[in-house]
Design a protein around this nucleic acid. Sequence first.
RNA 1: GCUCGCUUGGUGUAGCCCGGCCAAUCAUAUCGGCCUUUCGAGCCGAUGACAGGGGUUCAAAUCCCCUAGCGAGCACCA
Length: 522
Amino acid sequence: MDEAERRERLGDLDPDALAELEAEDEADEHELPDLPNAEAGEVVMRAAPNPNGPWHIGHARMPSVIGTYAERYDGEFICRFDDTDPETKRPDLDAYDAILDDIDYLGFKPDVVLKASDRLETYYEHARELIDLDGAYTCSCPAEEFRELKADAEPCPHREKDAATVREEFEAMIAGEYDAGEMVLRVKTDIEHKNPALRDWVAFRMVDAAHPREEAAGYDCWPMLDFQSGVDDHLTGVTHIIRGIDLQDSAKRQRFVYDYFGWEYPEVLHWGHVQLDEYDVKLSTSTIKALIEEGELTGWDDPRAPTIKSVRRRGIRGQALVDAMTGLGMSTSDVDLAMSSVYATNRELIDDEADRYFLVRDRDDDPAVEREIAGGPDAGHPPRHPNHEDRGRREIPAGTVLIEERDLPAEGDRVWLKGYGCVREADGAFEWVGDDIDLVREEGVDVVHWVPAAESLVTRMRTVEGDVLGYAEPEVADLEVGASIQFERVGFVRVDAFDPAPTPEDGGPTGEEDVVVYYSHD
RNA sequence: GCUCGCUUGGUGUAGCCCGGCCAAUCAUAUCGGCCUUUCGAGCCGAUGACAGGGGUUCAAAUCCCCUAGCGAGCACCA
């Protein structure tokens, strides 16, 4: 009896037991723990990226997890751009759409897209209300001076200003009557709170630089993250917040504002930082940006860059990334993501559709070597896919072939050219032996890949470790850009371009290539 | 310095709130076998973990304390 039969029989004997078993199965499929206090149809979550550059792989975690939860609970997925710093983390105008595109690649679509920089008037309104509730005060202390007072749990003289004065000075902030550093609005929390991080934090400050978005360029008084994000989460009905441990004090800070307004704070989950193995490059927008500017990387989609654009160009499916990210769970500790688990998932996703081809690599330590075949058929005909004979067979001209030096048999020994037959190495040439498969099965002849010496395509394969040159079999020319294929005994690749134009950067195409492919994984 | 948090095999994770069914789950990785004209896949098997110490208890991965290690916040960044 197999599993299905056993279940059917159990269903007859004891339907309740079967239902229980199936419920367990369903629970097991959840990589992510259930959300606290979550009800189907009432969950609202948000990703709040700062659009200051394209995303690295770590950024995939938030949309992956939120999107997955939104699907599980039939909830809402808000994408809110927290672009309230026109200066130090200055938004990149291209990043807004690039980020939405990356979310789309992961297979999710936000229900709502917001930009904080569109919502300044809303923040001002709430600040005014907070002032009226005696929950905030304008402060002209130099930052350093206040820091010392705070460290000693001492209030500054501005804390006791009357509301009218505070209101007046805040309106002057909005009107742009101060320069950066001259005046801030602080939330009145508890100046003696045992955690210094929570004492009278800044809600609004003056910024001299104009916001890059035209719609927001006229504002000089900008909210800080904790104020803006706290107000927006409430106003947009967010029920569950997920954020990094770097923001673990944010909820505690924002609670003071929520208490003034009588709002209920959402559920909060924190998680640690993600590190990736495999890459030499740090998972940091600024680091990657710098390496591109220095010419170390050819761009955000360089295969050596740990970015979403890069893995996408390499033919990794968004789903593979989502599975890996949700598999990391919701732990508060820092985690290392093994790229091998992304690759394992992706392999399952593309193996069935990826047709097989040959690529003979030509490397310094393992060059392609040429051999003329004496006797034997004119061509080999290996299948396009071992599990799909219906897709037909390739035609690979034989005659004179290339194989990788490491695959070359010793003088007098035999090797099986896959899809062709068995040959023997004799005086720098191959002698036809035959196509009796028992040679492989019973006599242990190695099976290797090969390409014709004359008709093959000059190929550049871009990998995480750098580029590899080689020769691909002729039929690769018939593929479409974007196709995922497997170079047998080499690995899966995505076809990126035919006859690419040369690029000035090191590591890019030189103009010699017939085809450029990006290496996915083995 | 003050405050907060974390620590399960190579990696990730489940279990911890509500102690016993945990001689600890699942995935990945590595190794071996079967199958296969390669690789991959599939099937079978193996490897391998509760940071350390103390306490409470009939019973601790789970509760308490201490130590160590790691991380984060104390920004007019997000």
